[in-house]
Structure formats: structure tokens, C-alpha cells
Design a protein around this nucleic acid. Structure first.
Length: 598
RNA sequence: GGGACUGUAGUUCAACUGGUUAGAGCACUGCCCUGUCACGGCAGAAGUUGCGGGUUCGAGCCCCGUCAGUCCCGCCA
């Protein structure tokens, strides 16, 4: 039906007769000459029709409206000197339409404007309901093209340069303990039994290593039935990789090459290697988080040692109860941040309390290093303590010191949040900067207060650091996360490949021998048939593409995403099903709608 | 499960402290216009102010409930 894409045409095509298919992006009717911007996925080209030069197409051109689908045949012509359009890649040429064939019109007014030149933001629920129209729009089309480029670059690197093999793993698999809530699928053939959709292909990829596939990858859909966020969808796409006979350093090096290749290919950005590395411990201490945004400086300073015996009970009490006191020093903060914002009702106060803090203490450093603060702090710190505080935090006149005091986790969390908000607001973040870094040496386990047990921080197949085997519960893991501008985009580890160690880890997370045998017996058994040392990594590709596209939500890089209520506004999924279907599955719903609903 | 914000014409927004007939840009419809490219000009049509209830002489605005969307906390090995 067509000979070219609209966006491809250049002066090399001059005098060629071409046939194009696409949508009317805009029509400009001058009463005599009519211009049509014809759009397909490649871009836009200008079509011209006028009663003298193209009398046969003119009546059809008059009839066209936005988003009509047409096939146009005509000759590629040089635009007159004064009508060149440098804003369009096709702006030196135009097509004189010999024929315009209407392939399909449009009967309804569009729910929103689609045209490439339209930049107004539209309500997201409308966009999602009419996603097929939304995807015609320039930015969404660009995002999906970018996503494709990223996937292509990944495949090229892994297959052509690194000898990886793509293997698919089951979507219908078994539910395993730990981790997120599973999506369950009832088995008709085995009534009363359920499949789970995979949270990741973790166990299968390890088994592929047992099988000797050596270097595996898959661009895999994963499913987690948890609440949604701007960067979390119930189904999402991972680049899943697993390798045998490679050390942690070798895996990291290979992945740096992969990422460098992707950034170079897709964005023409050169990223210096090796990427910086931070240990988990250092990252927590300096930034309060395990995924620091290192595009800007602002670092936390632990001042517990200085204030542990001071008279200000909020500080000394926090330390005595095993917590900490940390400071976020902000250069020129005195001029840029008012007390109103720090005190109850203020935006910074709200941020801190949302993270669990009770409030924010502050000190303003004035000329001559005089401290301006609340009396309780001023009166209860000795001159020496004040002096040490200034020294340790590097505070100069003009500095605002924001304090977090309490249990370690809350202090880190709230100051991390403040740091990010202020970094943004004070314009400290260069949006074009790309910072990739590894966070390493995660702890194996974390204490779960609610369940009163240790749980795996990464997952229970992560190998402990060989130096830490004696004290497993406090061991470091051979695990690593890749952080891109403060967002975790990938994480992986060396895996356990010996039955005894795996059993010890299961024991540490409170999984009974029977339970472990029941749920992971196949893995433990596999370890007894010659399992190579192996490890891997998984990337959240939606997040990676989101960041590359400079979008704020992964929904903007997913063709058909779900809303925060996990529903699809286009298809109205999830939906009720026929009673007959449930009966075949031996499933009944216990759900009762609230009386005042519907 | 919890907190916050939003919902007004097809769409993006406005509408003062609760006050007359709810406005504007774009889109749409009609007419005019031969070099525009976000073309231009003239005219027109277009509203259950998400839904239900309440307060009030009077509600887009206040209150209660509800639905939907967004952001966040919890949750997400």
C-alpha cells in the first residue's frame, strides 16, 4: 500500500512518485492551496493540494479532518525557498498529492488532541482509557521507540558480544514463600491447586546454570501483587541474567560494559568505567539510603558522639536508646529555607514526619559562627560541643543544619527525604547528569519486627560473604545493586550453590526443614548433582527506560499500564467472569460488595 | 489499611468572601482566505460543575458520603 514512511523523505527523493499512508496530523486550508501534515510512526511530511496543480486530489483534500486515515500518492518536490521549514526533518520537501484515498474517517470528536504539535498535558485517566490515541502522540511514541532501542541494544550486547543465550521460563509456576504477594491462577485440571505467576524467574535461571547454559538472559515479565506507585506496576519487565564461573567483580565488570553500551547506543552518552562503588554501610551513613542520588553533594553527618551526653534530651536520649543523631548541613540554607518550613505545618516538617520523624531540630550558623537556634539546644550544648559540631559538619556562616534524632532507621529515612527534596528545590541537581554506581556488601538479613524473624534482604538464595560464614545472621551478602541517579535499576548477587549453606540460610530465616524440603526440595536436590558457582542480576527495564526518557512514571514507558487501583481503563480489567468459568475451576468468591456500593 | 491532592464544555484551564445568565484558549460546525507549517479572519454550537445527600434565602465554592484518577506511608525477598 505504501512505498515510504513519511518521516524518511528527503531531497534525495526529489521527483520520485511516492505513496504514503498515515493520519492527518493537521490540515491548513488557505481557501486555494491546502496543506496537510501527514503523520505515521516515523514522523511528519507536508502534503500539498491545490486546484491548479493537483485538481484531481483537491476535492478530497478539502474533505479531510484531523486523524483521518489516508493513502496519498504524489511527487516529492522541492519546497520554494521562502517556505522551507527547518523545524521538520522533512522540511525541505513536500508532496504534491495526485490522489488522496480516504482509508478511514473519524465519526466522533477526539477525546483529546493528538497532533504532534500539541503539547498540552491531558488527564491521565483519559489518556489511559483512549491509550491507542495517546500512543499516537509524539512523546508516547518517542518513549516506546526509545524502549525498543534499549531492548535492542541489550540484546545486541548480550548476544553478539557476550555469548548469552535467551531462554524462556514458565509464566505458570509455583508459589514460593518470601517476597511479594503472588498472583494466583487456579488449575482446572488439578482442582484446589494453584499456579503463581513468577515474581522473577529466579529459581529457573539458577537451574539453567545447573544445566550448564553458562550465560543466560531473558527479557522477562514479572508479577507482584502489591500496591502500586509511580515506579511500580503489578506486571513489569526485567532484564534477567545469570552467569556461571564468574566472580562478583567479573559480573560487575560485564554489567558495566552492558550499561555503557546501552547509554552509548541509545543516548550517545559516554559513561566512564569502572562505576563508583559504595558499600551498603557507607551509603547508609553518608546518604541515609541504599540508593543514593550522588548527582549533588549534601551528605549526612553523624554527630551522635558529640551530643550523646549533652543536656538536650531529644539528642542524648536518642543515643542512649541505641539510636543516632545526624545532621544534614545545607550551605546557604539560612537564606533559602525559612523557619516556617521546618516547623509544624511546613513542607519540610511534613516530609520528615511522613518518614516517621517527630520533627526537625535546626541550627543556623550566623556571622562569626554564632548559632541561632531554639533555647533548648543553645542552652544545653557546651561551647566545646558547639565547636565540635561546627567542625564535624564543616559548617560555615550561612549554613543551616537540620537534625534528625531517634532510631537509626527513622533518622536516615527522614534525612534522606529532606536531602532529596532540598537537592531538587535548591537546584542542586543537574538533570542531564548521569550517575551510575554500585552499592555492595548488603547485609544478608534484616530483622522483621512484625514477624519477629530474620528475612533475606535480597532473597534467600544470595550467597553470604565467605569471611562471614561463622556468624551468618550478621553476615554480609555478596550482593550488589546498580543505582542510577538515586533509583535502583538493577540488583543481583552471587548465589548459593551448595546444599549445606542453602539449608543454613533457610534455617536462619525461620524456614523449617520440612517446609524447606517441601517448597525448595527441587533446588536443594539440584545442588547435589554438580552445580557450578553462579550469580546474576536483574534490571527493572521500565525504570531504566523511564529515566532515559526523563519521565516521572513508568506508566509513560509502558504501552498499556494499569492505574494505581491496578485496573486497565481501556479494557476494564479486572472484571467479573462467568459463573460457569468459576465452576470449572472449582472456585467460589467470598467477596460481598459493601451495601451502599453499586 | 492510612494520609494528601484533584474532578467545571470534546479538551486545557478560569470563575473573588457562598450571590445575577458558569467564562477563555484549543478542538468542533459553517462561511471567507493560494505558501502555510500551532496559518489567518468572521460567525456558531457546545455544561447533570464526577455522583448522592445536607447546610443556606441562595452552593461549582461549605459539610457528609461515594466513585474515579494522582502522589506518598504501610507493603514491594
Amino acid at each position: 500500500m505504501r512505498t515510504h514512511y513519511c518521516g524518511q523523505l528527503r531531497t534525495d527523493h526529489l521527483d520520485k512518485t511516492v505513496t504514503l499512508c498515515g493520519w492527518v496530523d493537521r490540515r491548513r486550508d488557505h481557501g486555494g492551496v491546502i496543506f496537510i501534515d501527514l503523520r505515521d510512526r516515523s514522523g511528519i511530511v507536508q502534503i500539498v493540494s491545490d486546484p491548479q496543480r493537483t485538481p484531481q486530489s483537491y476535492p478530497d483534500a478539502e474533505f479531510l479532518r484531523n486523524e483521518y486515515v489516508v493513502q496519498i500518492t504524489g511527487k516529492v518536490s522541492q519546497r520554494p525557498e521562502e517556505s522551507l521549514n527547518p523545524k521538520l526533518p522533512t522540511g525541505e520537501i513536500e508532496i504534491y498529492a495526485e490522489t488522496i484515498q480516504l482509508l478511514n474517517g473519524r465519526n466522533k470528536q477526539l477525546p483529546f488532541l493528538v497532533s504532534t504539535s500539541e503539547t498540552e498535558t491531558v488527564r491521565e485517566d483519559l489518556r489511559l482509557k483512549y491509550r491507542y490515541l495517546d500512543l499516537r502522540r509524539y512523546s508516547m511514541s518517542q518513549n516506546l521507540h526509545l524502549r525498543h532501542q534499549v531492548f535492542k541494544a541489550i540484546r545486541h550486547f548480550l548476544e553478539e558480544e557476550s555469548n548469552f543465550l535467551e531462554v524462556e521460563t514458565p509464566i505458570l509456576t509455583r508459589s514460593t514463600p518470601e517476597g511479594a504477594r503472588d498472583y494466583l491462577v487456579p488449575s482446572r485440571v488439578n482442582p484446589g491447586n494453584w499456579y503463581a505467576l513468577p515474581q522473577s524467574p529466579q529459581l529457573f535461571k539458577q537451574l539453567l546454570m545447573v544445566s550448564g547454559f553458562d550465560r543466560y538472559y531473558q527479557i522477562a515479565r514479572c508479577f507482584r501483587d502489591e500496591d502500586l506507585r509511580a515506579d511500580r506496576q503489578p506486571e513489569f519487565t526485567q532484564l534477567d541474567m545469570e552467569m556461571s564461573f564468574m566472580s562478583e567483580d567479573e559480573i560487575i565488570t560485564l554489567n558495566e560494559a552492558l550499561m555503557t553500551h546501552v547509554f552509548k547506543t541509545v543516548k550517545n552518552i559516554d559513561i566512564p568505567r569502572p562505576f563508583p562503588r559504595l558499600t551498603y554501610k557507607e551509603s547508609r551513613s553518608r546518604y541515609g539510603t541504599d540508593k543514593p542520588d550522588t548527582r549533588f553533594a549534601l551528605e549526612l553527618v553523624d554527630v551522635s558522639a558529640i551530643v550523646k551526653d549533652c543536656g538536650f534530651k531529644v539528642f542524648s536520649g536518642a543515643v542512649k536508646q541505641g539510636g543516632i543523631v545526624k545532621v544534614l548541613p545545607i550551605p546557604q540554607g539560612n537564606d533559602t529555607i525559612s523557619n516556617v518550613r521546618i516547623k509544624p505545618g511546613g513542607d519540610l516538617f511534613t516530609e520528615a514526619t511522613a518518614a516517621g520523624a517527630k520533627g526537625i531540630a535546626y541550627v543556623r550558623v550566623k556571622a562569626g559562627k554564632e548559632l541561632e537556634t531554639i533555647g533548648a539546644i543553645k542552652d544545653n550544648l557546651s561551647e566545646e560541643q558547639k565547636q565540635q559540631l561546627l567542625e564535624l559538619t564543616g559548617a560555615e556562616p550561612g549554613h543551616l543544619l537540620l537534625f534528625g534524632a531517634g532510631d537509626t532507621q527513622t533518622v536516615n529515612k527522614s534525612l534522606d527525604r529532606l536531602r532529596l527534596v532540598l537537592g531538587e528545590q535548591l537546584g542542586l541537581i543537574d538533570p542531564d547528569k548521569v550517575n551510575l554506581l554500585w552499592v555492595t556488601e548488603f547485609p544478608m538479613f534484616e530483622w522483621n519486627v512484625d514477624e519477629k524473624r530474620f528475612e533475606a534482604l535480597h532473597h534467600p538464595f544470595t550467597a553470604p560473604h565467605p569471611e562471614d560464614l561463622e556468624d551468618l545472621k550478621n553476615a554480609r551478602a555478596q550482593a550488589y545493586d546498580l543505582v542510577y541517579n538515586g533509583v535502583e535499576i538493577g540488583g543481583g548477587s552471587l548465589r548459593i550453590h551448595q546444599r549445606e549453606i542453602q539449608e543454613k540460610v533457610f534455617e536462619a530465616i525461620g524456614l523449617s526443614k520440612e517446609s524447606a524440603e517441601n517448597k525448595f526440595g527441587f533446588l536443594l536436590e539440584a545442588f547435589e548433582y554438580g552445580t557450578p558457582p553462579h550469580g546474576g542480576i536483574a534490571y527493572g527495564l521500565d525504570r531504566l527506560v523511564m529515566l532515559l526518557a526523563k519521565e516521572e512514571s513508568i506508566r509513560d514507558v509502558i504501552a498499556f499500564p494499569k492505574t494505581q487501583q491496578a485496573s486497565c481503563l481501556l479494557t476494564s480489567a479486572p472484571s467479573e467472569v462467568d459463573k460457569k468459568q468459576l465452576k470449572e475451576l472449582e472456585v467460589t468468591s467470598t467477596y460481598k460488595p459493601k451495601p451502599n456500593q453499586q
